[in-house]
Design a protein around this nucleic acid. Sequence first.
DNA 1: CGTGTTTGACCCGCGC
DNA 2: GCGCGGGTCAAACACG
Length: 332
Amino acid sequence: MAMDSSTCLDTSLSLFDLNMNPLLCSDGNHPVTTKKELRSDFIDVGTTMISPKEQADVLVEELNRMVEENKKLSEMLMVMCENYNTLQNHLMDLMSTKNPNKGSPSAAAISKKRKAAGSEDNTNNNDRVIGGYAESSSSEEADWCNKKPSTEESKSKISRVYVQTEPSDNRLVVKDGYQWRKYGQKVTRDNPSPRAYFKCSFAPTCPVKKKVQRSVEDQSVLVATYEGEHNHPHPSQTEAILGSNRGATLGSVPCSASISSSGPTITLDLTQRGTTTHGVKRSSPEIDQSSPVFQQFLIEQMASNLSKDPSFKSALAAAISGRIFPHSLVNK
DNA sequence: CGTGTTTGACCCGCGC
DNA sequence: GCGCGGGTCAAACACG
């Protein structure tokens, strides 16, 4: 639904601002130093002639400052997540008062036979492509649930995302920020386009699966069907706060229509925790973002991503070389 | 060499 | 029981 998108987009843009601009810390006094600024800080220090002892002190001081900023960024993330949840709940209330009956499929729809589902992509009149993406309504999903009587809770969490792509783009790729491993491809009877099967590979234990297939009616539209719920935070929740300006990271921000670097693809992540589909409030257990486990996860992700970030490495290398070989840096 | 993708084989549920 | 079709597995392959 578009409302979800706008809510999500709002949060994403906040993240984007977080990445691009030196913001004030939560105490409102100390500006958060971006990675770019850090690099220039290093160079500035590196070009001045100071003793090794002082250099070590400066390094320690710098490290402490970064740790402090890291803490503050984490706090900001927590606040933002809370705001997101508040907005989401507000939206739920609005949607439930507007469409009290939506999301409760009729018994007829539920009892649809498997054969009737054969033309699922072009018979569901409730599905509409809206501005490049759309989400499905309930009937097909209820049918899906019926096909496989759920033995696990996650089986019942099914959503569908429509993504407008270039007709010439033959890849069955729907960018939603998560990491997916393809484990199969099949040509189905009702659709000449192959259907690709993906599993979430961000967390080894994540049960979420995704099916991607081109729409029968419009070959430029990819239909991504998500099954299950992620048991881990969205990768962008940890990557975004690192202030990385890399395209890959930006592309992983949910609802990234305005900032995606990969062409006209517009993705709407309906699988995110707390997100609803079909106007039905999800009842799955939510990840407590204030929990020590979540915070530990965040810290580990930050450390991991920082260590992988080539620009951070080069900045660090420049800073170190600037201190050890100040002249060589000046000559550059 | 590790990781991800491809693709044919296999499994299983459903309809006849 | 058999055939069909969707979903999954796993060996082979590609790539960085």
